[in-house]
Design a protein around this nucleic acid. Structure first.
Lengths: 128, 128
DNA sequence: ATTGGTGCAAAGGCTTTGCAGATCG
DNA sequence: CGATCTGCAAAGCCTTTGCACCAAT
């Protein structure tokens, strides 16, 4: 069960860094421009594996398609309810203070902070 | 377009309070015991409407079914990756400190803090 | 009597799976 | 060569939608 390197895999990684919180389909479209034969299934399969390997992040908002994030260092997300874009928020100090006792009982492996609302551009549009 | 009160609707509200972060299907099964004719569609429709009315909360974890929460006051969630249960975490002071400037540009309407990991029971099981 | 709600069945969106063939090491 | 990976098609899961009938106000 040794992992192999494939053209598809490296192109997916490349797209992940190039695109901004893309969905599987957006990555697939991006790569299709170069390698028209790539399958959406392959994109899904590789993304899923990378998430399991903790080499990328899956951002789930609403019930729409999963958005992937190549930035794995701790940070929060802002999600625009109007245009759907995700913006990374630097970690510079969001401090979830959880009640005493709770943290001792459970084991927390992941912390997600998602702010939803309207981004600067959409906020302006809403007013018109 | 005035809203009407139906038996289904009130049973859904009742189940929401009785069950612990249930999915639409769990609510449907619960009600089916009393009213076997209730349709899953009706449950989905009412839940969706309540979420839009901000009378309940939709908690999205993974890509599985949405879990609904009748507690709408600010609080965080803990999600057990092993047994899947959701635990409400009292709001007693989680303070997302977002970088200066960002908050001035965007309009935030919702803040979600989701901690994932292993609950007390599952943590013990894992060790065996 | 209106017209919103319900149940049913079908469709829809996103993701996963089974399988045969291609490919990396 | 052998095991993993790919592409294709099909299935799966959760949720929504269209439509005719039912029922709350």
């Amino acid at each position: 069960m040794t992992k192999r390197n494939t053209i598809q895999k490296s192109l997916i990684v490349e797209s992940l860094h190039k695109l901004d919180h893309p969905t599987a389909e957006e990555i697939w479209q991006d790569i299709s421009a170069k390698i028209p034969s790539i399958s959406l299934t392959t994109v899904y399969r590789n993304l899923k594996q990378m998430v399991e390997d903790n080499s990328i992040l899956a951002v789930t908002v609403d019930k729409g398609a999963i958005k992937y994030d190549s930035e794995i260092h701790p940070h929060a997300h802002f999600y625009c309810l109007s245009c759907g874009k995700i913006v990374d928020i630097p970690p510079s100090g969001f401090v979830p203070k959880i009640p005493e006792g709770f943290l001792e009982e459970v084991e927390i492996t992941k912390t997600e902070l998602l702010l939803s609302g309207y981004c600067a551009e959409c906020k302006i549009k809403e007013k018109n």
